[in-house]
Design a protein around this nucleic acid. Structure first.
Lengths: 331, 331
DNA sequence: GTGATATTTGTAATCGATTACAAAATATAA
DNA sequence: TTATATTTTGTAATCGATTACAAATATCAC
């Protein structure tokens, strides 16, 4: 394995010159430049990253900490982050917290050990509660979850607005008695609940919410239990894709027909929502864009650590499908 | 930021002793051990990984190179790999090749630069063709794709067998005239084709195959074109989940009913396959297990570089659903 | 040509750990 | 007790780059 002194020797120059050429620094003569480049090529020289990082204190690495990359929302975000990171010659370390604050703390420590240049984080509710960027040695951009008053760079959906519009859509399509199943342990769930409450209030309707853990299995069993005690509502809203899937499975189990007996809507435009019969009305999140915006924000922050805190708010798109078909106010 | 000499000073010992205690080496007195541990704790000392890696030449990092983490098959593998890696105090660098050999070569170079201790790789067909582990400075475990004669550690599904069983299932359920849509650019696609051909031959039936690019969009348009020239076959087989989804979308577009007019089957038990009406008969791959086996194999290889080349072959499970319902041989 | 200034190049210090080797301390055998 | 073997500890070299600083060289005005 060739190292810098071999290249220097081969080119007949000092190691400093080699380093300068390879780092693209100015103030080096064209003749040396050529000789170094040729020598490096000839020896197939690759700088040792460990040595470089030790001396330069840069790692060109960022961390991506999400609850579970298997959640399609985060899968897409990961892909976006990696695309942009690699275009900018950054590496990505991926971590899954499973919404577990201990794992989250472990990975944040790991990020410090790795001396990453920045982190994209989807924080647990516990961490978000009193989150302060200043507590960390590296810049952090929050994704997906962020309170109104959190002083941190963030990229989020306008959850309140999206839930408001989804709820309003249901009401206007003749489903005033609807109930929200939301993930109480997440900031997004709470914000979507807020939008739901606002929409119901605006129409003078009685809201009804069910707090669940945001997993398919838990949502399914919670919904199953819910349907054992009539009367059934006219419509359901799921605060995310996992809960939505759980609700659908429960409805299948208890043989309640969508949309004849009940309307079903939710968040996240997953592949299956337009494949099932009927198609499910959802708020589609621009997931790739969210990831892209997050990594771009992070790279900017790394380049200019002092710039003002920025928040990017993206709008969800309502995809109307047959699961929330119009119906007469009274049947 | 405290460093090792601060800890040494605080504990009143040499840096060597601190290093030894923290590395868990034997031959250090209990009294020093205690003092060092206390000092490290007090100063919240975290070893600098760049320095450690430079000197020790270990990075405790592995690479995971797949075509696209958004493919649910690879999403699940990623998660398994990360789980086991982190349990063993390894980090994971994730890379997406998009089946592009240049990107693949780029990332393999990156792995060398990063001095990773090993790589889990889902190779492009081009790379697999003359793949030799010995060409790389680090151990490599192949996942998902591997030829019969590839001399490399690998974890794969028994594709020939699985395709054989799926095809046989169709034939036995009264669908002798079936056609396989397969990803011609992938080793798995070719092996599944092989199993299909064998099953058809075993039953004295005429095989029919359509080579497609393994993406939803391409499969959809290829299928769309296919259905414009009757006669239609009695059944379809998709060689992976993306193609399967493309076929289903095409069938919806041209309004061919499953299973009344045509049976539909494929590989990969994605969430939607049991949600759509009718449920789709598929070969379920033990994806998490595949990822887990791959990382475990890699960790073993790292620990014992000279051990014999090993191949883990897992069996796919046939999930029978209504999309391939039994029908009379002649209608 | 001289001196002042700007540019290019090289030498050596440095990043912060690990670890080979030597020295010191302790245990064991005679 | 002494000599020897063993264990514990410390000193200093080392990993392979980057970069501060000094030295050498080139450029320019007069």
């Amino acid at each position: 394995m060739a190292q810098i002194k071999d290249v220097a020797h081969q080119a007949g120059v000092s190691v400093a010159s080699v380093s300068r050429v390879l780092a693209g620094h100015a103030g080096v003569s064209e003749s040396i430049r050529q000789r170094v480049l040729a020598a490096a090529q000839a020896l197939d020289y690759r700088p040792d990253l460990a040595a470089r990082r030790l001396r330069s204190r840069r790692t060109d690495t960022i961390g991506l900490i999400v609850s579970d990359v298997r959640n399609p929302f985060f899968t897409e975000i990961s892909r976006a982050v990696e695309d942009v990171a690699y275009q900018n010659h950054f590496r990505v370390i991926l971590c899954n917290t499973d919404e577990n604050p201990e794992k989250e703390a472990f990975y944040l420590d790991l990020m410090r050990d790795e001396n990453v240049m920045g982190v994209i984080l989807s924080p647990t509710l516990a961490l978000l509660a009193d989150f302060r960027s200043a507590d960390y040695l590296f810049p952090i951009v929050l994704v997906d979850r962020c309170d109104r008053d959190t002083a941190a760079d963030a990229v989020v959906l306008d959850n309140v607005d999206a839930a408001y519009r989804l709820t309003t859509h249901l009401i206007e399509n003749g489903h005033p008695r609807n109930v929200l199943f939301y993930g109480a342990a997440s900031a997004t769930g709470c914000q979507r609940r807020e939008g739901y409450m606002a929409a119901m209030a605006a129409h003078g309707l009685e809201p009804q919410v069910e707090a669940v853990t945001a997993t398919v299995d838990h949502a399914r069993s919670a919904a199953h239990k819910f349907f054992c005690r009539p009367p059934h509502p006219e419509a359901l809203i799921a605060s995310n894709g996992l809960i939505l899937l759980g609700l659908l499975e429960a409805l299948r189990e208890v043989k309640i027909k969508v949309p004849e007996q009940i309307a079903l809507t939710g968040f996240d435009d997953l592949p299956w929502t337009r494949l099932v019969e009927p198609g499910i009305t959802v708020i589609a999140q621009p997931t790739y864009d969210i990831g892209q915006a997050a990594i771009e924000l992070l790279l900017q922050r790394i380049a200019q650590p002092a710039q003002a805190v920025r928040r990017v708010v993206l709008r969800g798109e309502l995809c109307e499908r047959d699961s929330s078909k119009k119906r007469n106010a009274r049947r």
